[in-house]
């Protein structure tokens, strides 16, 4: 076992799959010689050669479209979109094309593509470098969206994503890249897509979160414990598909829920989760399901970022509302 940051775990997962499967290709802007702007692909070109790890021209739509062609020929492309806010340039290739290839071809063609991309706020990058756009992809049938919250999960989920036969957008929260290390096995392992993890058991309220908000939720849960409120924290790990079974099981136990997302109130996946809960478990609820989100504005400028982003105090406030309802 080694202590790894999330970025190291991601590089390790890429290395593992480049070794395991000669059809895996890693490419994007600056991923080759430079090793990626966040160093996620560092050393991979030297190790696997310029045919399998390469730089592309600065052209996201082209990266998306070329991935579709490679996947049709049996490769498993793992392209990088340098910042997920740049995905708009490739949106047609993703939601309009790769998501629909299986359906359009009557099941004869697959798109085993994993698009990796950094996203998320709190590192003083401006809008389009920090936006949480997972909702845009999660709304498209045919796509899967994976968001790890830890180095261990990042490795297992990325390996599973690359081996998956459907297109996956794998979002890496920038704030988590180097914020902590944990034990990550050096050997390969997978974590099932579409399965959430209960990060902390509790009895009074369920916090549903993903990405960096898992950590804010855990911190809130610790604080709440001091005041005698026992919070269960669920890390979704995959936001499309969503593991509703795990959420509903928890709801039936705690009868109170707060959904936490970094995305704006009108974006992300919280609204969808809340709708599912009220449709499927309303008689188990003792209070309305609330959410913690960023406000409905364009991503904040640096000076306002810490106020704009949801934090553990916002979560505590919401939890107190549902507990005292």
């Amino acid at each position: 076992m080694a202590q790894m940051t999330m970025i190291q775990a991601i590089t390790d997962a890429l290395r593992t799959e480049l070794k395991n499967d000669e059809n895996v290709l890693v490419y994007g802007e600056d991923v080759g010689k430079n090793g990626g702007v966040f160093r996620a692909t560092e050393g991979l070109q030297d190790e696997f050669g310029e045919d399998r790890v390469f730089d592309t021209p600065l052209a996201e739509s082209g990266i998306g479209g070329i991935s579709i062609g490679l996947a049709l020929q049996g490769f498993r492309p793992v392209p990088e979109i340098q910042f997920f806010g740049f995905v708009y340039e490739a949106m047609d290739a993703i939601n309009g094309q790769m998501a629909r290839m299986r359906y359009r071809s009557g099941g004869t063609k697959a798109q085993p593509i994993t698009i990796r991309s950094p996203f998320g706020g709190g590192v003083h990058t401006p809008e389009l470098h920090a936006d949480s756009l997972e909702g845009l992809i999660a709304q498209q049938p045919g796509m899967k969206v994976v968001i790890p919250s830890s180095p261990y999960d990042a490795k297992g989920l990325l390996i599973s994503s690359i081996r998956d036969n459907d297109p996956v957008v794998f979002l890496e929260h920038m704030k988590l890249y180097r914020s902590f290390r944990e034990e990550v096995p050096e050997e390969e392992y997978t974590i099932d897509l579409g399965k959430a993890e209960v990060k902390r058991e509790g009895a009074d309220v369920t916090l549903v979160a993903y990405g960096a908000m898992v950590h804010s939720s855990l911190k809130a849960a610790e604080e709440l414990e001091k005041n005698g409120v026992s919070a269960e924290v669920i890390d979704l790990r995959t936001v499309m598909p969503i593991d509703m079974d795990t959420i509903l099981e928890s709801v039936k136990k705690t009868n109170r829920v707060v959904v936490v997302q970094e995305a704006q109130r009108q974006a992300g996946v919280a609204a969808h989760i809340i709708a599912e809960i009220q449709e499927r478990a309303i008689l188990h609820l003792e209070a309305p399901v609330l959410r913690v989100t960023a406000p409905d504005t364009v991503y904040a400028f640096s000076q306002a970022e810490e106020v704009w982003l949801p934090n553990y105090n916002d979560i505590i406030e919401r939890v107190n509302q549902v507990v005292n309802f």
Binding site: S61, G69, L72
Partner: peptide
């Protein structure tokens, strides 16, 4: 067009 390029790259 980029699909054709990807297929050619694969080839």
């Amino acid at each position: 067009v980029p699909h054709a390029v990807g297929i050619a790259l694969a080839g």
